[in-house]
Structure formats: C-alpha cells, structure tokens
Design a protein around this nucleic acid. Structure first.
Lengths: 221, 221
DNA sequence: GACAAGTGACTGACTGGTCAGTCATTATTG
DNA sequence: CAATAATGACTGACCAGTCAGTCACTTGTC
C-alpha cells in the first residue's frame, strides 16, 4: 500500500541529445557526465551544504535515485566533480615547459590565458569552491594541492630560475616564493567572485603591471 | 504536564567572570558577547550552512532560545558576527597614515603586523570566512567591501603615491592596483587555511621578498 | 529590614519543514 | 524475456525557530 502507481515516464527517447544510437555504456557515461555537470553548477552557486541532490537531479534531467547509481553519496559526488574539473587543469600544468622566447613572454602568455580561461569562467569558480570548502574537505584540499598547487609551484619555480639565470629577473629570492608571482592572479579570481559585481577589476591590466614589477618597466607592450 | 521540573540553573552567581557585581544589562551584554564568540568559532570551523545553532548555544553555555533573544535568526547572528569582527579592523585602517620614515618602513611594519595579527590568528579566519560565504551573502560581501577593502585600498594607494613621489617606488602604474601590494598577504592567509597543515609557508619571509620586488633589493634587512 | 508581587532573562521540549539516501516498482535493452 | 537501468515515493534523521513555563532578581509595601 505504500507506493502509488507511478505510471508516467515521459518517453525519454533512447537517444542522447546527439543523433547517435548510443549503447548502454555510452548512455551511462553521458548521464554520469550530465550529473557532474549539473552538480558543478549547483555546488558553485550554492556551496556544498546548501546544495540539494534533488536540484542536481532536476538540473541533470535525471531522477534522484539515478545519481546514487553513479555516486556513493553526496560527498563522493562532490569530490569526483572537483577531481574531474581539476584533472585537465593539472594536465596543462605538466605540459612542455615552453623554452621559447623570453621568460617574460611566457609569463605574459600565461597571464593572458589565465584571465581568459580562469578569472572570468567557471574554472575560476572551481578555485573559489576549493578555497571555500577545502578546509572542511581535507581530501579535496590535499588532492588539489598535489595535483595543481605543487605542480604549478614547481613549474613556476623552474621558470623563475630560468629567468634569473638569463638575467631577466633580478630578485634571486623570488625562486623561493613562486606564490608571489601567482598572487595577483589569485586575488583577481577572488575579487571577481566577491566584488566583481559592483567593483569590477581589470585583471589583465593588473597582471601586466605586476609583470612590469618583476621584469622591470615595459615588456612587450 | 509538558515541562519537567527544571530545578537546576546551576547557581550562576550574579557576577560575571570578573568580580564585578554586574546588573541585568551587563550580564545580558556579556551573554551576547559569549554568543558571538561561540558563533565565531563555530562558523569558522563548520561554515555557515553546517553550523548548528544548538552547537553555538552549547559552546556559549546558553540555551538555544537565548540566542534568539539576542538575534533575529541564524543569518542575523552570522552577519552581526562578521560585523563585530570587522569593525575594529576597519578602525585601524582609518588610523593616522603614518608619515614617518620611509614608505618601505611603513609597509614593512604593516607586513609584520599582518603576519602577527592576521595570518596566524582568528582574524585570518574571518577573511577566509568572508571569501567562502561572501558570494552567498551579498550583504556581507558588500559590507566587507565598504568597511575593509575600499578603505584598505584607498590607504594603500595613498602610500604608493607617496612612495612614487619620494622616488622610493619606480612603478608609477602600481598606484592603479594597490591589490598587487596586498596580494601576497592574501595568498598567505588562504594558504595557511588550506595547505598550512601539510605545507606551511613562511609568510614573513615571503612578504619581505615581495617588498624587495617593489622597492628594490635589501631594505632595512 | 522583611516579605510579597512583579519582571523579564533564560530555558529546552516541541513543531514543522527539509533533505540525504533507500528500495519496490517500472521501463528499456540486447 | 531476462538482465539491467531508472524512477520517485518514502523514511528517518536532523535542525531552525517557537513558546509555555521557570526563577533570579528588582521593586514596592508595611
């Protein structure tokens, strides 16, 4: 007597949104992806605790139970999502350390990419999410440190050392604190999230000034 | 039939922890303070959504109902707490712009204070709390911007301009982005909160290097 | 000064609502 | 048509906020 008939199921055609036939495995993977996608948006907007699984489900166009077919529980979903958002980033950080042109040019390029791909976009939101929830999810802080921060720092240190060796960078001590080079970028991300609404910040210009500080006035400008 | 005898009230003597007699009003103020104190700790540790009012009450040595005598609801308590933690900070930011000695010395002093009073302590936690919860509490982001950020930026800009006028600072463009000067300090705060546990950061040393970058090698070191 | 009536700060059991996670049932697929 | 995927009603736990009741202290009275 407990359950009502539940006769519906609005004939969700077997095809994924693309026209491809799609076998079982593929459809499952698609759904999993859709769930992660939806979870991403929702966790970004609401934070971990305030996110309701029901909302994620609705957003993903899936019933709540389905989420639990793919993820053990809410926390697993959250960690998986951060993981999946962070891995491609980590991949780029391990990319060829471009030894072409001046170090300044490399960093200028980096700054440009950063503003374009992180500050404004959802990747920036991931950073903010990690900052916000990290303290309460040691596993995530840990993972993020290993995959992104330590690699990023190592790469940056290598660049700095190269810059020092080539005489482009004066401050030899800078190699001990790659954080200094990255700091304004971090501040830009946080700023946009907190104050961007009413006090927008020209991140690109700021990063340029910061590079001037490191390399001395006027680079490729 | 509803209530148990409730014979207790462990004879909380009319005295506040100090030896003063303490009238009704004073005791009430004490309690309010204790609640804010407890709320502070708890919100810091758990974040807004995960904090239970019952826990705050227990920590403050007070019944849950008492909290609602002092604060309209959970959100009001939260906002009040940020307010009370931020106001003294804001006060210091409006303090006399110390025109003594070199600008470098002023900033060195500032950095020292910052490391001592913010990076390590609970004030740092407030910054992290605002970063974490700000996006979901526009009122708080707004308040924090007005009281702390905009004042801090203005003060910093004034210092930078002075530094430029006196020839201590080369980068004239720095005055457009006081954020650059503050950025490593922010990063230090976030770093301690997220990674400090397993990858501690010598914030003082980092800030020193950063000042070297702005003023040229070797200051008062 | 002693005693009663009054006041309001404080309490904590309770309510109403919310939500993570489950599972009996139904749909789909190979 | 078996096996697998998906559903969503349901449960139990949890928690913000309420309020009837208590009692420490104050005020008024003699």
């Amino acid at each position: 007597m407990s359950h009502l008939p539940a006769k519906k199921r609005p004939i969700k055609k077997k095809m994924a949104s693309s026209g491809a036939p799609a076998g079982r495995a593929e459809r499952a993977a698609d759904r999993r992806q859709a769930i992660i996608e939806a979870a991403f948006e929702t966790f970004i907007e609401q934070g971990y605790a305030a996110t309701r699984i029901d909302d994620v489900a609705k957003r993903a166009g899936v019933a709540k139970g389905t989420i639990y077919l793919h993820f053990k529980d809410k926390q697993a979903l959250f960690e998986e999502l951060v993981r999946s958002a962070v891995v491609p980033l980590a991949a780029r950080l391990t990319e060829p350390p471009p030894a072409t042109g001046s170090i300044r040019a490399v960093l200028e390029n980096f700054a440009g990419n950063f503003v374009r791909e992180v500050t404004t976009t959802r990747r920036g939101a991931i950073v903010r999410l990690v900052i916000a929830e990290g303290p309460r999810f040691p596993a995530i802080a840990d993972f993020y440190y290993r995959e992104v921060v330590s690699r990023g720092m190592a790469g940056m240190r290598a660049l700095i050392e190269l810059g020092i060796a080539r005489g482009e960078i004066r401050q030899a001590a800078l190699k001990d604190f790659p954080q200094i080079v990255v700091a304004p970028a971090m501040v830009a991300v946080i700023w946009q999230g907190l104050f961007g609404r009413f006090a927008p910040l020209d991140a690109a210009a700021m990063l340029r000034v910061h590079l001037d500080l490191i390399f001395g006035e006027g680079g490729s400008a």
